[in-house]
Simulated assay, not measured.
Amino acid sequence: MEYVEAFRDIKQINAMKRYLKKHSERDYVLFVFGINTGMKITEMLDIRVGELMEDGEHIKTFYEYLHHEQPKEVYLNQKIKQAVLHYIQHRALTAEDYLFKSARTNNPITRQQAYRIVHQAAEAIGFTGKIGTNSMRKTFGYHAYKRGVAISLLQKIFNHSTRAETLKYIGISKTEHIRTEIDVNL
């Protein structure tokens, strides 16, 4: 497996969002979901619309899924909720539909298709680093760490055995200085 990078620059993230939204709302939601949850692409592709809905009208605050036979929860922030709800309503998706449904079948898109989506968008905005679907997960980790989330918590989310492994995964070297933004916004 090749090493891929996180999107470190917020301007690049916003450019990716604009590009994807212009080309496909499903692809935009895929990217927003990926960079805001840190979930693996294979876990994301299995999501059905009904699993995210609270009462048929609202998106849940926490989504629970199985990870290696163990239940795991992920927080769905406001950006995800808005993007997903608009997408579900716009496409008139039912509870049984996959969230990232293929245009040709009732199945979800493949990992390879998700890779093509992210890779083509990154090329289109001029991103020069190595990119893949794992870049979304790494972007989540990098920006969470930068905003003050403890590396031990990210280590647990990514199921890594050491702190060093997590730092390497999100692309932070031992010599790099990160200005942490701890903003409780009370």
Rank of each mutant, 00 (worst) to 15 (best):
N14G: 05
I10F: 03
L66N: 06
I109Q: 03
A114S: 14
I151D: 02
N159S: 12
A121R: 03
G141F: 10
E5S: 04
T42L: 04
L76P: 01
F33H: 03
M39L: 15
Y75Q: 02
A95R: 15
H23A: 06
I172N: 12
R116H: 14
E64Y: 09
I88H: 13
R8Q: 11
I125V: 14
L167W: 10
T61W: 07
E176L: 08
G34P: 04
Y115A: 09
H67W: 00
A144T: 00
A6E: 09
E43T: 00
R163Q: 14
T180S: 13
R48H: 09
I59D: 03
G34V: 02
I178A: 05
Q113I: 13
E176Q: 15
K146F: 06
S102K: 06
N106W: 00
D27W: 08
Y65L: 11
T128V: 05
A124R: 10
N106H: 07
F31H: 02
A114P: 08
I131N: 01
V74F: 04
A150G: 04
K72Y: 08
E54I: 02
T128F: 00
L153W: 12
L66P: 00
Q70N: 05
T37H: 01
G50A: 03
T37D: 06
L99T: 09
A121W: 03
K156A: 15
A122S: 14
Q112V: 14
Y3V: 13
G132D: 09
Y75L: 15
V49A: 05
R18S: 14
I151T: 06
A121F: 04
G141M: 03
E64L: 03
L153C: 11
